[in-house]
Computed example of a mutant assay.
Amino acid sequence: MAMKVRAFLLCCLMAGALQAQTIPMPFSDDAETRQISVTVTPDRRSMRGLPADLIRARRAMHAKQDVPDDSLRRLADHGDGLAAQRYVRRLIAQGKAQSSASDVAYYSAVAVGAGRVWTLPDMIEAMRLLDPNSEPRDRIREYIKVLYAHAWAGNTLALDAVVVFNGRDKLFGALSDSTRKKILAQGEQNADGKVELRMATALLAQDAPSEAALERARGLLEKAYGSRHLGIRTTAENLLVLMNTRYAGDG
């Protein structure tokens, strides 16, 4: 199976058929590193400041009683991470993961930012469906705040998402030098080569990568080749061979 996955990845790059954001990266993270959680915005702990109807709704929620969608959403807007998580799960259960992708992503971010990291996969999956040109900037800022905090804390799922959503014409926009350095520093700390492989494939997936991009990709692949993960190491080796073949006559 691993050989089939690597062959598919190589074919995608050779054909230039996929955008960097959709290139598969089928190497699973350690479950423990995917669950690393930090509190970005403290969760609501009291009824203070809530209108009377939301006080009743919050009491009902904690009593595991049914609460209307609108009440869950409004509680989430008042900083209640549990309400945000339940609202996301309800949207998904109602089959609205695609039609309400922005709400799923945003309220997942509220939940994750309050320490409910179990909602992070839902957040990232919804973010893949968002249009960078129409998604509200305040929501994008929330995604950045939550993902970066978890990525720099060592959450490998969040770190991979930071790589995916940074770049020209992507949700977070062009990757800054400071963010690139932080990504690579965290990748080196993780020592699995996955970040380097993801960044290299993003560079190679460009329609016409520049000499500088090819040089960066080669350096990243050489680092990924030192991974302790056999699949990542082998894929990096294969891509280096592909680069030598495909770009041998360039320049």
Rank of each mutant, 00 (worst) to 15 (best):
M1K: 09
D177T: 10
R141W: 05
G251F: 15
N244R: 07
E188S: 07
G226W: 07
A158D: 07
A2E: 10
D138V: 12
V5F: 06
G231F: 02
G231A: 14
P132K: 00
T235W: 00
D80K: 13
R6F: 02
D131K: 00
A236L: 05
V88G: 03
E237N: 07
D169Q: 11
L242T: 13
A84V: 04
A174Q: 02
R58P: 02
P68G: 12
L203P: 06
K96V: 02
A76I: 04
A191Y: 06
L13W: 03
A31L: 12
D69M: 09
M243F: 09
L157C: 04
E211L: 10
R218Q: 15
Q85I: 04
I232V: 14
G231N: 05
K145M: 03
G167D: 01
A31E: 13
R86T: 05
V40A: 05
P136L: 12
L54R: 12
S176M: 04
E215T: 12
E125D: 13
L54M: 09
A208T: 13
K181R: 15
G226K: 10
A111L: 06
S71Y: 15
R90W: 06
V117N: 04
V110H: 01
K170E: 15
L221E: 00
P209K: 10
A153C: 06
A149Y: 01
L230V: 14
A60W: 01
K194Q: 13
A20H: 04
D69K: 08
T22S: 11
D43T: 02
L147M: 14
G226T: 04
D250V: 14
L18P: 08
A52Q: 11
G219I: 06
D207Y: 03
V110W: 02
V146L: 07
D103L: 13
L204F: 06
S108K: 02
V112E: 01
Q65D: 09
G167P: 09
G95L: 03
A174R: 01
Q65F: 04
K223S: 13
D80T: 14
R233P: 01
R228F: 12
G173Q: 14
T33I: 10
V241F: 15
